[in-house]
Amino acid sequence: MLLLPKFDYYEPREMSEALKLMSKMKTSAKIIAGGTDVLVNMKKGLISPKSLVNVARISELSDVEPSNGTISIGSGLIVEKLTEFDIIKKKLPILFKAARVLGSPLVRNRATIGGNIVTARPAADLPPALLAVDAKLKLVGAKSSREVSLDKFFIGPGQTVIKPTEILSRIIIKELPPFTGGDYIKLGHRNALEIAIVAVASRITLDSPDGVIKEARIILSAVAPKAIHAVSAEKALKGEKPTAKLFEKVAKLAAGDCAPITDIRGGAEYRRAMVAALTKKTLMNALNEAKGK
């Protein structure tokens, strides 16, 4: 049996209370919501925070709020709910797809969207999809709050710009323009309970159903210390007419845009090749979706 070390436990009901606790305890405390990451690391002896602050009972953190062309998702929303809300399925299908392949149903019933972001794991499932739709994060502190684009949030494995006294409260996504399509594909060994060997999220927006690519995002996951944009690939898509040949070329560029390593899940060479394969596949699927197919 795996045991947990001892810690003090706090369970604020209000955001203000949580923030007060965090500004008092700072790095000696860890925030817990679903616990699927924090408790695993504690059981493995990787971390042993003096205190845990459970934010799961702060009700304002677990809703989805559509307003004025944006969708604002509470950080405490469990991943399974991302697959249940109609609005996510309809307006953010790429996030829906990513949520569907995270861990297992048992994990999705506890893990939260916020947890999947702040833990900053290089192979996390939700950040690539969220980066592809230009998500912003609302970070709340005791005295002030700020909005940070997700692109500026990650520093490296386990590291982000969030301060120990701040709490990620909401994930804010602007509704996507018409003729937009996206796709997220995760390559794992098994068909469930997997951490990605490579994952790619692509999103394109056309100027008209048969027009050129107005905007493009290609996010590569598990091939760098954090999820990254395939910069040259994205650039090469802009203003071009989408064709299989273009996607082929862009896929090769994407492979050059990443810096994979060899680890327990896969070799660097294979990962690079898979970036190309998945980029092409996700772009094709994104195109079909953009055209309303």
């Binding site: 436990y9 817990i32 699927t36 408790l39 799961a56």
Partner: peptide, 12 residues
């Protein structure tokens, strides 16, 4: 909802 009870604190 079905969950892994090994990853939930009793107090939670």
């Amino acid at each position: 909802r079905p969950v892994n009870s090994c990853l939930i604190l009793a107090v939670q």
